[in-house]
């Protein structure tokens, strides 16, 4: 299945690249990340907690980064599996500088999902994943704005990321209020989610090097 999506960050490309190389910011933007280890130059292994409706559990992922062009783009290949099923995918991520000083993130790729995650979580995947992506990227964007503001004023601006429970509560609220109405293209939602998770995992790791 093919997937694609985009998000605009309120800051310049270099800052976005730097931000997403900061593991602390990233792990708070997507609570649930448990570990990430580099096993070879371009290969990483990590664990992440994931909950989609009735399906919850730890996913163990293997990520391979290739074709990296800082601060612009890279290709990611992921093989993740856990009790609730498996996720396999490939994705391309691009950061494009905009004229107004903003940065457009584009992602596109292909993902396969199986097991309980596919068969039982199906109905909730669309809304949950859209919400998780949106909240995660919004959190990153707030962190970005805090940094940009600090550079202007020369002072540290306080940035408080959401806790795992706050994050989960926001997602649940979105789902309950139908903030993201379900479309039939449920796969795209989960695929975007997975790619974003991958991006986050990779950059946490890279940032930590």
């Amino acid at each position: 299945m093919k997937l694609e999506g985009e998000y605009t960050f309120d800051g310049p490309q270099a800052e976005v690249w730097k931000l997403i190389r900061d593991p602390e910011v990233l792990s708070t933007a997507l609570p649930g990340t448990q570990s990430l280890e580099q096993v070879s130059e371009n290969e990483y292994q990590g664990d992440m907690n994931l909950r989609i409706g009735p399906v919850a559990g730890v996913f163990s992922g293997k990520i391979i980064v290739s074709d990296e062009v800082p601060p612009e783009s890279c290709r990611l290949t992921v093989e993740g599996k856990g009790k609730p099923g498996f996720v396999n995918g490939t994705g391309d991520v691009q950061l494009i500088a905009q004229d107004d000083g903003k940065t457009l993130m584009k992602y596109a790729g292909e993902v396969q999902i199986g097991g309980r995650l596919a068969s039982v979580g199906q109905r909730l995947i669309d809304t949950a994943s859209k919400s998780i992506i949106s909240q995660g990227l919004d959190t990153l964007n707030r962190a970005l704005q805090a940094r940009v503001a600090a550079q202007v004023t020369g002072k540290e601006v306080e940035y408080t990321p959401p806790s795992e429970s706050e994050f989960a509560a926001s997602v649940a609220k979105d789902m309950a209020t139908g903030a993201f109405s379900a479309s039939r293209m449920v796969w795209i939602g989960i695929a975007i989610l997975i790619i974003v998770l991958i991006v986050v995992l990779v950059f946490i790791s890279r940032g930590g090097n």
């Binding site: 299945m1 396969q112 999902i113 199986g114 596919a118 068969s119 039982v120 199906q122 109905r123």
Partner: peptide, 14 residues
Amino acid sequence: YDENGQLLNASLAD
């Protein structure tokens, strides 16, 4: 079933 042979509605809720 999706194109990978995954059954997408394996519950009586779906």
